[in-house]
Design a protein around this nucleic acid. Structure first.
Lengths: 162, 162
DNA sequence: GCTGAAAAGCATCGCCT
DNA sequence: AGGCGATGCTTTTCAGC
């Protein structure tokens, strides 16, 4: 019933991760209280999880719309070849665009899934055109987000029943 | 050259947002130093941004693989109807699955884009089957992530040239 | 709206169990 | 490994500008 995890992460570590994923600015004293430890060992565990790379960082979660990003959309991009140099060049290009927030290679090469933000429809169209006109791009399918019901950027901390 | 933003967010606020998006656990003293303020007004600005909803929260960023989530994939789900009750029921169902991390309605109804995590291929297949067999689901297309080049969950804080 | 000082609370270290 | 106590820093409030 228990998962064998590569670095030894026990139940207390999981609780710590769940708490910090929910509130990354929680004080160590409060965190220690919640997991039933005193402050020093709790902090030692957090530092260890950071050093091990289990915790990769802490980020403020900002509202895109308030900052002027009215539109979130996805783009499925197909390239003309699967040549490694072409794939890498495409990745390098889109990673430099600030509107591109995520870039995932899918299905073994030649296809990418991007998540982008845009200020308005005109901006979205301009970005789509920029993608379509980029070197070696064969097709671009955009999927515009109408509404988002769940947006949990993190991962489940507990193992779940399959 | 300057954007007119709904709640009055000035250049210092933007700097604060950029810093906290990059490091959500930065101390207020360090943040104040970086934006060229003393600690008290800096803290007041952060609190105001939190109350206004510009900052929605702070989260630890965890490594999915270390926690046993080897696979991230997207699922494009088409429903049989666009009836509001059916759409809401589908959303409510998938939002309860812990493996579903994001749920976006796309293209005006009837279609959803999900981001999911799975422990292994068997788990992924089980999840896909569970989606396919769910009420009113017409088709499911899964897009498995091979590698991720950029994964910036946040948004650009500066306006960008269109 | 900012600065500066002061009080309360927190992070962090060394040592002990 | 976890807990206790001490120290220095941080947060937070409150006058005063």
């Amino acid at each position: 019933m228990t998962d064998a995890l590569p670095p030894d992460i026990d139940e207390v570590d999981r609780q710590i991760l769940a708490e910090l994923q929910a509130d990354g600015r929680m004080t160590n004293v409060e965190l220690a209280r919640r997991v039933g430890l005193s402050a020093p060992p709790c902090l030692r565990r957090v530092r260890r999880l950071e050093e091990q790379g289990v915790i990769r960082g802490y980020h403020a979660d900002l509202d895109p719309q308030v900052l002027g990003w009215e539109i979130t959309f996805f783009a499925l991009v197909g390239l003309e070849t699967q040549k490694q140099t072409v794939l890498s060049a495409f990745e390098a290009m889109v990673c430099e665009w600030p509107e591109v927030r995520e870039c995932h290679m899918i299905r073994g090469g030649g296809d990418f899934m991007l998540r982008l933000v845009a200020r308005d429809t005109a901006h979205e169209n301009a970005l789509t055109a920029k993608l379509t006109d980029a070197p070696n791009v064969l097709r671009v399918q955009t999927l515009q987000t109408i509404r988002t019901t769940k947006d949990a950027s993190g991962v489940p901390v507990e193992g779940v029943p399959a």
